[in-house]
Design a protein around this nucleic acid. Structure first.
Lengths: 111, 111
DNA sequence: CATATTAATTGTAATATTGCAATAAACAAA
DNA sequence: TTTGTTTATTGCAATATTACAATTAATATG
């Protein structure tokens, strides 16, 4: 039915999935990479940089902002986006703790 | 249009997104966690463990298998699933290298 | 004020994802 | 062979996501 049954999972499982989902699109990966590399704030060159239409980029930025990955401040007619460092670090930790798991030694050669 | 324009991104960006996308669903997070914790191979208790219908679990397992997260060996009528350690480690690295990024010091206080 | 510039919003179309009932397939055991 | 057990597949229905054209909103500049 296209709807995820969030209520049957733990809070942590939902959180991990939510964070990963945002990273689960190459446009958003590209945006984040761009913001990480930038020597200064990026104020709208993302459109030509990435090659999607302006409304599409705007939509991806909105999603990134909603999840707390980035923040934007208005500067004249343009908007200055950058990584929300505090949030990023906490999400970094949530994802890392999941990813750095390794199979328990006891089941290493059962398959 | 619901279709991702993969061709405009780098190979690496697509790879990161693809891996993250699989983790981007709580059911698959739950399955992976279960397989990590398991003292022995899991052969089908995932359905009652997680609380989704059997075809749904089967579908998520298929996706995990397609991406190389897990592998399954047939044992009689049941199937034994476990983490594909080699693949897991390489995907671990791809995601980690993206996640462990931090904003360059030069743009720290521009927003 | 009129005009340009930049970003957000709205509306819409196409495709993808999630979930399950029903069924099939594969095998073990009686 | 028949019956049970376990997992995969098929076929849907509902919802979500991706993308963009058209428009709007907000602000700067002439």
């Amino acid at each position: 039915m296209g709807i995820t049954k969030s209520e049957i999972y733990t809070k942590q499982q939902n959180e991990i999935a939510q964070i990963a989902k945002v990273i689960g699109h190459p446009a958003r990966v590209a945006i984040l990479e761009h913001l990480f590399k930038a020597q200064s704030c990026i104020c709208g060159d993302l459109v030509e940089e990435i090659g999607l239409a302006q409304p599409t980029i705007s939509q991806h930025l909105k999603e990134l902002k909603n999840m707390g990955f980035i923040k934007g401040t208005i500067e004249g007619t343009s908007v200055c986006y950058c990584i929300d460092e505090t949030n990023w670090e906490s999400m970094q930790q949530v994802l890392t703790s999941f990813i750095t798991q390794n199979p328990s030694s006891k089941n290493k050669n059962c398959c």
